[in-house]
Design a protein around this nucleic acid. Structure first.
Lengths: 228, 228
DNA sequence: CGACACTTTGACGCACTTCAAAGGGGGTGG
DNA sequence: CCACCCCCTTTGAAGTGCGTCAAAGTGTCG
């Protein structure tokens, strides 16, 4: 049902030089990955990889937004993480993807063969350390996710907005790349509760909602207070 | 309030040979850590390390049970993980502990200086890989924790029991090392809900509770069904 | 045996879910 | 360019699972 805009064999023929000029300091593993990576594009809603597929590749997001998710046996969906440009994902230690990954918007990314990176890591322990650090950063994010999930709806939504604001490093204007349903499945709430909570935050002047995906943080202190 | 039974300066004088005979195959990093580690003991309720303390050491649990936890600003407590013998914990990538660690029972563990392990990892990339793998395993556990937290009380408790049964690798008899409060704080529930849910599982013949910490899994299939 | 900590049980309230329907907003065809 | 449609979001009303408050039961250690 979900289809790639580009498949591997096509992508392999794309020029590898387009992104080679990115400065080595901007993100971890920049340079190494840019050298080895193959640029690919995915359309909105395309599946990048599926749950339980072998994890042969590692992905560095260049543009767009990716969500990982898992469908539970009763049909519920849990969103694991949202990835923004610069983020690395798909790095599973046991060779199988626990979550699937989908493009939320038009996505451009670099695909790197895991075996190639690992071979490099075996020779260069600085690379090895950066791979480890990437997994460590992921671990910290998931810990934060756990902390969100034990809170009230207001706290979860407020925490989510603060997290997104931090990550897009914008001013107080956030353009949410994901739908209400994605947010709900990330926060373990229903879409109705997310919607109602956002309206209530707007009514209490903590945020403004010029359009459904455009959020203005009017009172970060109030949001942080909710973020208990 | 929490006190160590043994402090570092004392522990450093303890014999390093006591546990050196553990077979190298039993767990990852066995051997390397046993060589470098200093045995220590902690009394029930002793703090092993605190939240926000620098993460200078890495711990390999030999005996007893450890819980990591975090106190939220409003006083709620979240339990991050339970560690059983053989588990490695305290391995934070950014040098600061996000959670504190406490001994739930009498605990024996090996303390290893992080810098020493990292120096070893820089020379031996097999060690480096195992450190990475340990973080990866931790990540998978926390993902599982997220999946628990979006479920109903019955599903959380059933999932918890199945997880513990798997980890202690016993038959259907589980001796829970942690209190109801610990379980509640791990599952994001109240102690009353955990207690009521266990009684209801007992009434539905899925488990038996000869004593409050002794659980018998009578019907794993029923528990798995709840575990949606 | 008594004190204390932990666990269980009960009654009630509330936050979130569920079910239902009414708005937008953006793209396409007439 | 307007009209219509489809999908996403918002709002409303009612139900319920879990939390809160309270008290009784159970096991353990001095």
């Amino acid at each position: 049902m979900l289809t790639h805009t580009t498949n591997f064999s096509i992508a392999r023929n794309v020029s590898r030089n387009a992104l080679a000029a990115v400065p080595a300091s901007s993100h971890e593993l920049t340079g190494s990955l840019e050298m080895m990576g193959t640029p690919m594009s995915f359309a909105r809603n395309a599946e990048i990889y599926g749950e339980n597929e072998p994890a042969e590749y590692l992905y560095k997001l260049i543009g767009g937004t990716v969500r990982t998710s898992k469908i539970l046996s009763d049909g519920r969906r849990q969103v694991g993480e949202f990835y923004l440009p610069g983020d690395i994902f798909g790095l599973e230690m046991d060779g199988v993807h626990a979550f699937s990954a989908e493009a939320i918007s038009e996505v451009k990314l670099l695909v790197v063969k895991r075996s190639a990176v690992e071979a490099l890591a075996a020779r260069d322990h600085e690379i090895a350390r950066q791979l480890w650090a990437t997994t460590g950063r992921e671990l910290r994010r998931v810990h934060g996710h756990v902390l969100l999930l034990i809170k009230t709806a207001q706290e979860r939504v407020a925490g989510f907005l603060l997290e997104m604001a931090e990550r897009v490093k914008s001013t107080d204007q956030i353009e949410l790349p994901m739908s209400r349903q994605d947010i709900a499945d990330y926060l373990g709430l229903t879409i109705e509760t997310v919607s109602r909570t956002l309206t209530s935050l707007e009514n209490s002047a903590a945020i403004a909602l010029p359009s459904s995906r455009h959020v203005v943080l009017r009172n970060r202190a109030a949001l942080r207070r909710l973020n208990a």
